[in-house]
Design a binder for these strands. Structure first.
Lengths: 157, 157
DNA sequence: CTTCAAGCTGAAGTCAACTTGAAGTCAAGG
DNA sequence: CCTTGACTTCAAGTTGACTTCAGCTTGAAG
């Protein structure tokens, strides 16, 4: 309908919910592509909106931009994912979400089991020591190690 | 057994699993306290280990250091939490974990419902638009908004 | 007494994912 | 033609939780 179906950055920003600065950043990082008009301004194809939806979904799932770029690069340029692509991807994502959920549940359940005990024992407490490591036998409170639990703050406005 | 039961920073680091630099940082941020010996070196009371366990637990649950400090400040200085303290705290934490778990489950279930559809519709897809906002009626793909899902990366070694 | 690991401070660096700012260009309406 | 708002680039700033560095001091062992 427009000049040639190409959208300037502000329009893409409004329609995608990303700030224009984020779109420029994504372009610089190679996650999205933009043509330029004669004056050097970005002109996005409409398919970028779908790509941005993918980016947001992936980032909601907790992937870093680098991982997202990798995943996008495995798709032929600009192609809409096929059913097979999409199954591979969602399988990956679902695994990740399940890991995160499981880690949180372990934490929460450890919390429940601790209610009222007030222990916070460094070597026994599931909350300060979720993965049940650090039970070295030398009497001293064992070191507590971190689980690679969560990803990304994602603080919007 | 030692001079007066006071631990230097390296020992606390080893026993707590935190790096010495992190301990100095926590002291600077007011999360833990250290006395000084005649030469100006930190000497920690053993109770700091329990406090550090608390800090690690809280940070595993996803609290920021600021929130942790607030929570610690609500306890009389250095006191081991009473049963009541601990119940209040774990209730708070459990709520937070449940929120996070629920958010992830919504995401995962949306993912399941999308398998094979390959849609990634900006206005319909639960993954790119988890909170089901952005259904403005004007034909254009609606903006996708972020849920305030997760906290803190927590990337150890 | 020597030695050197361990400690000290304060400033600066790191990481991710952007945002903000400055200074200038482009495009569309009147 | 002029104005205004959208756009450009590149550099620097932001946040949280630390780590690293430089340069110096302390303290325990031999």
């Amino acid at each position: 309908m427009d000049t040639h179906d190409l959208l300037p950055v502000g329009t893409v920003a409004k329609r995608s919910g990303f700030a224009a600065s984020a779109l420029r950043y994504y372009e610089a990082q190679g996650l999205i592509h933009a043509d330029r008009n004669s004056g050097g301004q970005r002109r996005f194809e409409r398919s970028v909106l779908r790509r941005l939806a993918f980016i947001r979904a992936a980032s909601n799932v907790g992937l870093t931009l680098e991982e997202i770029r990798d995943e996008l690069e495995r798709l032929p340029d600009g192609r809409t994912p096929t059913k097979a692509d999409w199954q591979r991807i969602t399988t990956h994502w679902r695994g990740r979400l399940n890991d995160q959920i499981a880690a949180l549940e372990r934490l929460r359940d450890g919390l429940d089991s601790c209610i009222g005990c007030g222990c916070l024992s460094l070597r026994r407490c599931t909350i300060s020591n979720p993965a049940d490591r650090a039970a070295d036998g030398n009497g001293a409170p064992g070191a507590a190690f971190l689980p690679p639990l969560l990803r990304r703050p994602h603080k919007p406005a």
